[in-house]
Each structure stands twice: as structure tokens, then as C-alpha cells.
Amino acid sequence: MSISAARLSGKWEGTVSHDGEVDDYAVVFEENGSLSVVTKKSGGFGTWTATDENTLEFSFREVFNPDVGQISPNGHHAAYIQIDITAELTGDTFTGAGKAVVHGPDGVVIYATDAQTTARLVS
């Protein structure tokens, strides 16, 4: 048995930790397996899949807002991040970990890092 789409669907608010930073975000999981994410400096879309009754995987492309001059830790201009997370759901909270791969304006990978997240269902 896997997580039901109805159990996961809705708006979740959380934080993601990476490279000594903590960023707030909101993610909306849809029953059809799609998702959208918003932060103060970016937004994106992706998909999610239940892997068993308490775990899920989600993947999305987070594109920086045009007015954000995002620079990666290694000094390159960043255009978007591909994020892949595996998370465990407990009640109305999930915690997870995964990879964030930062791409430049030309699509070339400029940086990769580990990310940890936690979020809570808000609606």
C-alpha cells in the first residue's frame, strides 16, 4: 500500500537546509501527481510519487525569479535548480533529504549539494 493522493494533496509549508543556509518554501501537492513550489526568490513545477505507505519521492525544477541575481557557492550565476527528494510522512509532517543540482543560464551544471527538508500540511 502507498500514500494516498488525498492524504498528501494540499499546501505544505517548510524549510530546506543546504550549505549552511535555511530557506522557507511552500509546496502544493496535487492528487494527479504534480506539484508546484514557491520561495521568496524562485518558483517551480514537478512531480511526486508515493513509494510506500509512508514515503514519497518528489522532483522539480526551481527557476530563480528574473530580479534575483542568484550566485552559486562557487561564484557562478545560477538560473535554476533541479531538486530530487525522498521524504517520510508522519501525520501532517514530512521530513526528507536529497540532491539539489544548480544550473547556469546555459543549462550547464555549476554546483551540486545535499539538502534536508521538513514541512507541515497547512491546508
Rank of each mutant, 00 (worst) to 15 (best):
N65H: 02
F64K: 02
V28I: 15
L8Q: 05
V68C: 03
R7V: 02
G10P: 03
I3N: 08
Q116S: 13
D24N: 14
D67G: 09
V102E: 12
A112F: 03
F64S: 00
G96I: 10
T55P: 01
G20V: 03
G46T: 13
K41T: 14
G96W: 11
G33C: 04
M1I: 05
G43I: 05
G20D: 08
M1S: 14
V16N: 07
E53A: 14
V68M: 14
I3L: 15
S123V: 05
V109M: 15
K99R: 05
D114R: 12
Y25E: 07
A115T: 07
W12M: 01
E62G: 01
D23M: 11
Y25A: 11
Y25L: 11
E21N: 04
S123A: 13
N65G: 00
P73M: 13
F29N: 05
I3E: 08
T117G: 12
I83L: 10
E62A: 09
P66M: 03
D19R: 03
I71W: 08
G75N: 11
A119M: 04
V109D: 13
Y25R: 06
A119E: 01
G69P: 08
L8P: 02
E13N: 04
S34C: 14
T55K: 14
W48D: 01
V101N: 03
I71A: 08
N65Y: 06
R120N: 08
F45T: 13
F94N: 04
F60G: 03
S9E: 08
L35G: 09
G104H: 01
D24H: 13
G14Y: 08
H77V: 15
T86Y: 02
H76G: 03
A79K: 07
L89K: 13
L35R: 09
V37Q: 03
S72P: 10
T49A: 14
G104P: 02
G96Q: 08
A115R: 03
I71E: 06
V108D: 12
R7P: 00
L121Y: 08
G10Q: 03
M1H: 13
T39V: 09
T93S: 12
S72L: 07
V108K: 15
S123H: 12
N65T: 01
A50W: 04
G96A: 09
T95R: 11
G20W: 12
S34T: 15
S9I: 00
A87T: 07
M1Q: 05
E88S: 15
T51D: 05
L121K: 15
S2N: 15
I83W: 04
D67E: 13
Y80G: 01
Q70H: 06
R7Q: 11
S34A: 14
A78D: 02
D23I: 09
V37Y: 03
N65P: 00
V109T: 15
A5R: 10
S42K: 07
V109E: 15
F58C: 02
S72K: 10
E88W: 02
G46C: 11
R7E: 14
S72W: 07
K41I: 13
S59A: 10
K41F: 07
E53M: 06
G69M: 13
E62C: 04
G75T: 07
P66T: 14
M1F: 06
P105K: 05
L56Q: 05
E21M: 05
V122E: 12
N54Q: 14
H103W: 08
G44S: 01
G75Y: 13
I83F: 07
F64N: 02
A87E: 10
T95D: 08
V22F: 00
L121S: 07
V122F: 11
N32K: 09
N32E: 13
